[in-house]
């Protein structure tokens, strides 16, 4: 009897595991999206400051949401052909595998475990997440070295704790750590002057400064303690979709490199100042055909959301409340890590 039960259970389990990856690998996501007429992209179950927020009218906005819009426009021609599905952090990977969403654009770090074990395939990083330092302006600190002997507020039990210890240890900078469990406590301690500096994820620090009683009292130091490349994740084994994602990100960067903006894209398209811009905007055909998209997809996308710089500044950069410096998210020629792929 027991044997029968065990064999039934294992048969069901094997069936389930076989069915799982089979569903995930099956099909051509771009074709599915086109047939459905909308892209299913990740939102959040609540809000993640600067990246996925909800405005007063219940509409999604933020850095990640703009990339969802860009992808929807690239594939379907309009940023409105997009459904943002609210998912929690824990839910994002199974939701992708089950087909509840087509793609994860949700500040998701490109780690080896996720890449190899979770059946995910990452596109090139679209955001470089820095761990950096927020400090009081009056200290006039320009680097971590200037904060020698100072008190650092740190979120207890997170990777930040280890990152700061490693970084400071390697440079032999002495500091005193003050640990807090909750983000609210961390912020309150900084505002109350219990610490000289707060180490953490860049966007979090930007929000902390924005909410300070007097934001001008705090500055983000232009020094990076650690980086986490954030990638756009799709299901493993859909090469064409990954191509589309990579060239979508690249086209936004190409546009920035060549000063193609939301405002001047029509003028540039009517009279392309360089062959690259001609190819980017589809005046010289090729950018679309080779991906299975229309040749004006990049034009539509830039018209709808702008280039990389416009997206950044509007949502988390200087035109947003957070005013997060571009830092490593600049183009290579401005000291950052972003570059476009060659458009031939």
């Amino acid at each position: 009897m027991l044997k029968i039960i065990i064999s039934i259970i294992s048969a069901v389990a094997v069936g389930a595991t076989l069915a799982g990856p089979a569903r995930a690998a099956s099909g051509d996501t771009v074709k599915t999206i086109k047939e459905r007429g909308s892209l299913l992209c990740t939102g959040h179950n609540g809000s993640y400051l600067g990246f996925a927020e909800v405005d007063d009218k219940g509409k999604w906005k933020g850095f990640d949401i703009e990339f969802c819009k860009a992808l929807a426009t690239a594939i379907l021609g309009s940023p409105d052909k997009l459904q943002i599905i609210p998912v929690s952090w824990a839910q994002r990977f199974p939701a992708l595998q089950s087909g509840d969403i087509d793609v994860i654009i949700k500040v998701t770090g490109w780690t080896m475990g996720r890449d190899t074990e979770l059946g995910l395939q990452f596109g090139r990083p679209y955001f470089i997440g820095p761990t950096t330092i927020l400090t009081r302006a009056e200290l006039n600190a320009k680097s971590a070295k200037d904060l020698e002997g100072g008190v650092f507020c740190i979120n207890a039990g997170t990777s930040i704790e280890r990152i700061v210890a490693d970084y400071m240890g390697a440079r032999d900078i002495k500091y005193e750590a003050l640990n807090f469990e909750k983000a609210e406590e961390l912020r309150a301690a900084l505002y109350a002057g219990r610490c000289d500096a707060l180490a953490g994820f860049g966007p979090f620090l930007a929000a902390t400064r924005f909410n300070a009683p007097n934001p001008e009292d705090f500055v983000i130091i232009d020094e990076v303690l650690a980086l986490e490349p954030e990638g756009i994740a799709a299901r493993q084994g859909d090469d064409n979709f990954i191509d589309v994602i990579n060239w979508m990100v690249s086209a936004l960067l190409t546009a920035e490199e060549n000063d193609v903006t939301m405002a001047n894209v029509d003028k540039q398209r009517a009279n392309p100042p360089s062959p690259t811009i001609g190819r980017l905007l589809g005046v010289t055909p090729g950018i679309g055909d080779r991906l299975g998209l229309s040749n004006d997809w990049a034009y539509n996308m830039i018209k709808a959301v702008g280039n990389y710089s416009e997206i950044y500044e509007r949502t988390i950069g200087k035109d947003s409340p957070y005013n997060l410096p571009r830092g490593k998210n600049h183009l290579w020629k401005n000291g950052g890590l972003h570059y476009s792929l060659v458009l031939d």
Binding site: N45, G46, S47, G50, E53, V54, S88, Q91, N211, P321
Partner: peptide, 22 residues
């Protein structure tokens, strides 16, 4: 809310989760 439904607690989190109102 943990499985992505926007019931009143999740929408309250979304309501404070913007720079202006944190």
């Amino acid at each position: 809310t943990i499985i992505g439904f926007f019931e009143i607690m999740a929408s309250a989190n979304a309501a404070v989760g913007t720079g202006e109102w944190t």
